[in-house]
Every structure is written in structure tokens, then in C-alpha cells.
Design a protein around this nucleic acid. Structure first.
Ligand SMILES: [Mn+2]
Ligand SMILES: [Mn+2]
Ligand SMILES: [Mn+2]
Ligand SMILES: [Mn+2]
Lengths: 223, 223
DNA sequence: TCGTAGTATAAGGTATACCTTATACCTCTA
DNA sequence: TAGAGGTATAAGGTATACCTTATACTACGA
């Protein structure tokens, strides 16, 4: 793969992937929001990405990743999550902060560094936030788990991952000790999209429903 | 320190430092060569760097680093050499290649990553090519050693460092096993700027004088 | 079906970081 | 001291990646 794309191009392609552009058309307005640019700017960039073969633009519906686009997105996500592992496991840097630190490094990492990093880290399968590390040049965007916000009252689950990863959310959940591996039980779900009351580690935690929709869990069969 | 400078600005400032801009004015033509741009482009950039307070331009003589410029250069060199240590010592990547791989990473490395890397690597003092790692925000550009090209016939020395570092030179010297720590004796110096014949590890190696001027050695007193 | 929110395009502007060509200027050396 | 080589500036151009303002278009819900 060539990989002489700019940081900007890489971030747009990654954003489209993270917004589901491998499955459904992503409205360009969504991309603009996520990239913190105006819709006009995002539109210009989408035209460029289209002409470079990374996306397909369905008029008034949104953009879809091509095979090349998905490959690029996965390779960048791969780099980011590997660096997150390094920053957290080896350098002992902050779990929440590692995401944005890795977002800088991901664009400056040659293929040979990626592969050496994989060996050095012992071929990790997931980032510190529980999200899967794609294989090199992978064509599929792996996703597992159920949203914590959809867990029924009285049921239990084990936290698998936080997704999407944003510093604000990660920092908050880290502070609440809602980390991958933690077991939680839904004690109460307040009506009208109200917050969840969770039981975990002999403590009670109240969590807004929007936040809970960013937490992926594996449901535990025998509560 | 702010550090919201672009990769381009950082590379220009680093280049000026490596060309001796902390001591003597560096002709802008030299900078253009090293950055592989036209003299006009280098001139434009020097104007920008001047207005940003990183260099002082002495008309028709060259550019000198200001304190801010030297600090920036040292911080970038620090990042590069630390990454070189990581790439070579931990990831076992190629000794010669590590220089350019680190040259990408150096611009994408936040201060907290640098400091965590220092601890993780055990506070190394020199890069794998023997050059000193500056302290954070250091004002001095450390340089030690004598040029191998100036070692008298019959005399011996231990290789300290290769400087400046370029992939071509590093790869060649690596292949010849001329690495930091190696002891060499000058057996013969051919006339008219001819090559040196060196004795090392029970072998004889012939080395061009220009190459020998990139090898820094510590002279050994008792041959 | 009508209106609006969202989407698309056109036009013109900014900043960075390069380029070429041309001209002017300085310094050093023969 | 005259010329050559190196240095400086002017002028105009390219590509990227943003911006604003204005206008046009579409899809969908009330
Ligand atoms: Mn990034
Ligand atoms: Mn992560
Ligand atoms: Mn660099
Ligand atoms: Mn080095």
C-alpha cells in the first residue's frame, strides 16, 4: 500500500469509518461535526477523497468507504490502538489521554515500526479501551458487544469497550472506574430517558443514558 | 514552551542547528541544500522564522539561532534521539534506518510522552549512533570527540559517534562494522586527501577521508 | 403538498509551503 | 578592481486545507 496521504486525509477517512461509512452512507454534516470544520469544507474534502478513490458519494445521502478507504481507515485505527497499548502498558501514561496522544503518532508511523511494535507488545488484540485492533490491510471493521444503555433492569454484564473513544468520556468513565473488565448490574433505569443506576464493586453509580450508550458490554447469563 | 509549530518549521530549525547555527551564521544556501528546497524557498522560510523569533538573519552571511530557536532545535533533537533508542533497543529495528523513522515520530510527540519515554528507556544519554541526547529545553548543543579523519597515522581511537547522521552513511558504516565503541588504528593515510587504512577487530578497512570526517572518536593515549 | 432542515455548489479569501523566472545586490578571489 | 558565485527580493504560480457568504437543490415530516 502506498500511504503517502496527508494527516488530514487520514483523519477524514478514519472519521468516516468510525461513523459507520463501511456499512451505511454517512451524511457529510456528520463528518464536518466530527472533524470540527464547516460543512462546505467537509464537502470539498469529500470531493477530493472521492477522486482519490477512498469514498463514494451518494448525493444527499452521504459517503461510503471504498475498499481502499476501508483499508486505509483500518490501518490507521490499527496504528492508533497499538500506540495506545504502548503508551498505557509500557509508558504508564494516562488511560484516557492515550487516545489523543496516539492520534498524533498514528500518522507518523512507518509500516516496519507497526510490525515491530506488534511483536514488542505481544500481538495485542484490543486497545486499552477494549476496542479491537484490526489486522494489517483488513477489510472488516470489527464490532462486538451490546450497549449498556440497552441492558434490561436487573441484568448484569461485563464491560467490553468504550466506543467511540473521546477524552472527555474516557476521563469521566475512568474516574468512575467503569473500565473494560468491570462487572455491572442495572439496578434501576429511570423513565423518560433518565439515568441508569448501576451496581458495581459493592458501589452504586448513576450514569446518564447517553454515556451508557457508549459502553459496550457482554451480557452475563446468570445474574 | 508552546510547541504549536509545524513539522516544516521544526525541520528547518533543526537543520540550522545541525549546520552550526548556534555558533556561526549558516548560509541560507546550506539550509536549502539540507532541506532539499530552492534557495528562494529557504529564504522565504528564513524570513518567517525570523519574524517568529527563532533565527536572526545576518545579511549575506547567514542565519543564527536565537535562544528560542536553539531550545526548539534541542527539544526536537531530544525527541528524535530518544525515539532512536526505543526503535533500536526495544523494537530491534535497523540501526541505520532508525534515524529517519525517528525523524517522523519526533514531530508527533507530546511532552508527556517524551518524559515517559525517558523513564522507560532508563534516561539514556546518547542515541544509538553515539550522539548526545540534550536535556529538556537545553540551551547548549553538546559536541564531543575528534574527527577520525584527523587522527595521525599509527594512532588509535575508540569510535564515539557518527555525525551528522544520514541513512546512506549510517548504512555503509554499519555494514563495515564501524560502530560506536569500536577501536580503530590508523595504519596508513594516503596522500592527496586519499583514503585511510584502518585496523580494527583483526581486520583492515579502507575508508574515504570524507566518510572518516563524519566519525567522531576518542583518542586512546597508549597505542 | 408545502416548508424547512440539511445538503450541494459557486465564488472569493486566507495561510502555509513549495515552485520558476528575473533582477539586483554583495563579497571574495583572482 | 573586475567579475563570478552566492545571496536577496520581486512577481506570479501551484497545491492543500481551511474559511465566509450566497444560492440552489432535495428529502422528509407535518
Ligand atoms: Mn490522528
Ligand atoms: Mn483505544
Ligand atoms: Mn523530522
Ligand atoms: Mn542517532
Amino acid at each position: 500500500m502506498s500511504m503517502n496521504s496527508s494527516e488530514s486525509v487520514e483523519m477524514y477517512v478514519k472519521s468516516v469509518a468510525e461513523l459507520g461509512g463501511d456499512r451505511q452512507p454517512v451524511p457529510i454534516g456528520r463528518v464536518a461535526e466530527r472533524m470540527d470544520v464547516t460543512p462546505v469544507s467537509a464537502n470539498e474534502m469529500m470531493k477530493r477523497l472521492g477522486s482519490q478513490g477512498y469514498i463514494e458519494h451518494q448525493m444527499y445521502k452521504g459517503v461510503l468507504l471504498t475498499r481502499a478507504g476501508l483499508t486505509m481507515a483500518n490501518n490507521i485505527i490499527r496504528r492508533q490502538r497499538l500506540w495506545e497499548c504502548f503508551l498505557v502498558d509500557k509508558l504508564k501514561l494516562d488511560w484516557a489521554r492515550s487516545h489523543e496522544l496516539a492520534c498524533d503518532l498514528e500518522h507518523a508511523t512507518a509500516e516496519e515500526v507497526v510490525e515491530a511494535l506488534v511483536s514488542y507488545l505481544g500481538s495485542p488484540t484490543h486497545c486499552p479501551h477494549g476496542n479491537p485492533i484490526p489486522e494489517a490491510d483488513s477489510q472488516e471493521l470489527l464490532e462486538t458487544g451490546v450497549l449498556l444503555s440497552e441492558l434490561a433492569t436487573g441484568h448484569s454484564g461485563r464491560i467490553l469497550a468504550i466506543r467511540p473513544e473521546s477524552h472527555e468520556v474516557l476521563a469521566y468513565l475512568h474516574h468512575r472506574m467503569l473500565l473494560p473488565g468491570t462487572e455491572v448490574t442495572v439496578v434501576e433505569a429511570a423513565p423518560l430517558q433518565g439515568p441508569l443506576t448501576l451496581h458495581m464493586n459493592d458501589q452504586e453509580v448513576v450514569l446518564g443514558l447517553n454515556l451508557a450508550s457508549l459502553v459496550l458490554i457482554e451480557e452475563l447469563c446468570c445474574p
